[in-house]
Design a protein around this nucleic acid. Structure first.
Length: 464
RNA sequence: GGCCCCGUCGUCUAGUGGCCUAGGACGCAGCCCUCUCAAGGCUGAGAUCGCGGGUUCGAAUCCCGCCGGGGCUACCA
């Protein structure tokens, strides 16, 4: 029996903007597959676009993936047997490979200017014929020019490959024109660098977004021309669409930016859970999965073929489920950075009533900010003043814990002759300045006793 | 324009010829619980399976055409 090569997968994000959702999603599927097969997950930085690359964007990629717990085994900042992992540091390799192709007559220098190419394209459009590069520089290159790009001489024919989600794929390469593999600035195009690195880094399975499906024949022809082994298989994952079904854009769709999930207090494991469900389903009714469960359950056969729309509501529900399932200490720990004004004990005491009321951690602020800001005292009528006084009396005697506070308040409510609603609403208003709060006894308990009573008394004085 | 992928409740989806009077989840509505808001429990509305033709005793499921959406077609990745 043939021993198959160890599984090696990779993601290759470009540091040309904030880290985005698609990168997280692709990384997740790659990691799942790698763990499933006890393989390696490689992070390669695709920084061949000199114009748009920024080191800070690269840092953002590391940060976001780390936050999500999508850890890579090899990468620019981690090293590995196939270093370097930054394409900008591998340009010599690409140039050598391109030179080899030229020497073998499989690629050629192209001296056409962008304007000339644009003219060719327009002409083709005018004649309503599909555009393919004219091969002018192959047949009859212009003389006396020095600036050139390198074009791959597309052999044409039929290109077939296996896609783990879509099955056997077939493309007609006669429709593909000679494309550029080395830009005139000496840097490789994505179409070239990607398959070269995949081959050199011994990547066995290429798992990426569906936008790359049509790119696959380009890259396969290159792999063949270079004499490398093809990857065992590809998997093209459905795209994550915006709510309106369109492709997400940076301007219109904040959910594209991974940073906002951290800022708003979504749990990374919940986001991953949601992302997995977006385009895949286990075939059972299970919806909440630990990462290990995902590793066991995931399969490309059950991946959806159509793009899926991003839905905040479902994410919120899943995140709420995760929050509700967190232990007290763990929730308190994660809450800390969202309510830096509060000490650990207060946060800990707020957990029981707070837990079921959040679908993301940042919402803790809405419930707790009355603890560090004094609300404006509301206007009270005479009747209400009487009830607030009764509340103060009851509270002064009470032991400062939620249960005794509740009991004392309930006795006062009974004596007042009105319902809890009528009795508690003004208290809530005075204490928090809001219509919505944690249950009144918790609202009181979280405040130091003197402060709580002080706020109530001041409200009465203000009314007098 | 050409090539490729896709099309089931608002959304994510189950479904591979009869078990489908199309199931689940989120969301939505109502009720219960209840000091507010959640959480939780119960109930409900919601898809003639993009459209039109076939094939078949029988189609969401197979075939053809059309329409719609998306991707690629860059010296972006």
């Amino acid at each position: 029996m043939a021993v198959s090569a160890p599984v090696r997968v990779r993601i290759a994000p470009s540091p040309t903007g904030f880290a985005h959702l698609g990168t997280a999603s692709t990384a997740l599927y790659n990691l799942l597959f790698a763990r499933q097969h006890h393989g390696k997950f490689v992070l390669r930085i695709d920084d061949t676009d000199l114009e748009r690359n920024r080191p800070e964007y690269e840092a953002l990629i590391y940060e976001s993936l780390s936050w999500l717990g999508l850890d890579w085994d090899e990468g620019p900042n981690k090293g590995g047997d196939y270093s370097p992992y930054r394409q900008s540091e591998r340009v010599d390799t690409y140039r050598e490979q391109a030179a080899r192709l030229i020497a073998e007559g499989k690629a050629y220098r192209c001296y056409c200017t962008p304007e000339e190419l644009e003219a060719e394209r327009r002409q083709a459009q005018l004649e309503k014929r599909p555009y393919r590069y004219s091969r002018r520089c192959l047949v009859n290159p212009p003389q006396g020019r020095t600036v050139f790009a390198v074009r791959f001489k597309v052999p044409g024919g039929e290109v077939t490959f296996t896609d783990m989600v879509r099955g056997e794929m077939k493309f007609d390469a006669d429709l593909i024109g000679d494309f550029i593999i080395i830009k005139s600035d000496g840097y490789p195009t994505y179409q070239f660098a990607s398959p070269v690195d995949d081959a050199l880094m011994k990547i066995t399975h290429v798992i990426r977004g569906e936008e790359h499906l049509s790119n696959t024949p380009y890259q396969l022809m290159l792999v063949d021309a270079l004499g490398y082994d093809r990857p065992v298989a590809y998997a093209h994952m459905p795209l994550i669409l915006a709510r309106d079904g369109a492709k997400m854009s940076k301007r219109k769709h904040p959910e594209l930016n991974l940073a906002i999930y951290r800022e708003q207090g979504y749990l990374p494991e919940a986001l991953l859970n949601y992302l997995t469900l977006l385009g895949w389903n286990p075939g059972t009714s299970q919806e909440i999965f630990s990462f290990d469960e995902l590793v066991h359950a995931f399969s490309f056969e059950r991946v959806q073929h159509a793009g899926a729309r991003f839905d905040w509501e479902k994410l919120n529900w899943i995140d709420g489920e995760y929050i509700r399932n967190l232990g007290d200490d763990e929730l308190a720990r994660r809450l800390r950075s969202f309510v830096p004004q509060l000490d650990a004990t207060t946060i800990r005491r707020a957990i029981p009533p707070l837990r079921t009321r959040m679908h993301k951690l940042a919402q803790a602020v809405d419930y707790l900010d009355y603890l560090w800001t004094d609300p404006a005292p509301p206007a009270l009528d005479a009747e209400t003043v009487g009830r607030v006084e009764a509340a103060i009396d009851a509270l002064t005697e009470a032991q400062w814990e939620p249960e005794p506070i509740e009991a004392a308040l309930e006795r006062a409510v009974e004596r007042s002759g009105v319902g809890k609603g009528k009795f508690y609403t003004p208290l809530r208003d005075i204490l928090t300045g809001k219509k919505v709060s944690l249950p009144i006894h918790y609202t009181l308990d979280l405040l130091p006793k003197e402060v709580a009573i002080e706020r109530l008394q001041q409200a009465i004085q203000r009314a007098a």
